[in-house]
Simulated scan of single mutants.
Amino acid sequence: MRDDKQWYFDLSDGSVHQGKDSDVFNRMGPYPDRASAERALQIAAERNKAADDADDEWNN
């Protein structure tokens, strides 16, 4: 899939755009669809929790 057809979440204002409209430092993605991009912060939180849980399991 081409990058300009994928979706991104803009951290600076919380908007969602198709294509790389926002600055690379304020952009999360790419996501395959608008709904996923709208959930960018939730997806990141879930991934962080999974990684933290894996670290805890590894350390114990």
Rank of each mutant, 00 (worst) to 15 (best):
M1F: 11
M1A: 15
R2T: 14
R2L: 12
D3Y: 12
D4A: 07
K5D: 15
Q6R: 15
W7L: 03
W7S: 01
W7V: 02
Y8K: 01
Y8D: 01
F9S: 01
F9R: 01
D10V: 12
D10F: 12
L11A: 06
S12V: 06
S12E: 15
D13Q: 09
D13F: 10
G14P: 05
S15C: 03
S15T: 15
V16D: 01
H17C: 12
H17N: 13
G19I: 03
G19H: 03
D21Q: 09
S22M: 13
D23L: 12
D23P: 06
V24H: 10
F25V: 05
F25H: 10
F25D: 15
F25Q: 08
N26C: 06
R27L: 03
R27S: 00
R27H: 02
M28P: 00
M28T: 04
G29M: 01
G29S: 06
P30I: 05
Y31M: 05
P32N: 12
R34H: 13
A35F: 06
A35K: 13
S36M: 05
A37L: 03
A37T: 00
E38K: 05
E38G: 03
E38N: 10
R39G: 02
A40K: 00
A40D: 00
A40V: 02
A40G: 00
L41W: 04
Q42W: 07
A44Q: 14
E46W: 04
E46S: 08
E46C: 01
R47N: 05
R47V: 06
N48I: 11
N48D: 13
N48K: 11
K49G: 06
K49P: 01
K49W: 08
A50T: 04
D52S: 11
D52V: 09
D52T: 10
D53N: 10
A54T: 04
A54F: 10
A54N: 07
D56V: 07
E57I: 14
W58H: 10
N59V: 09
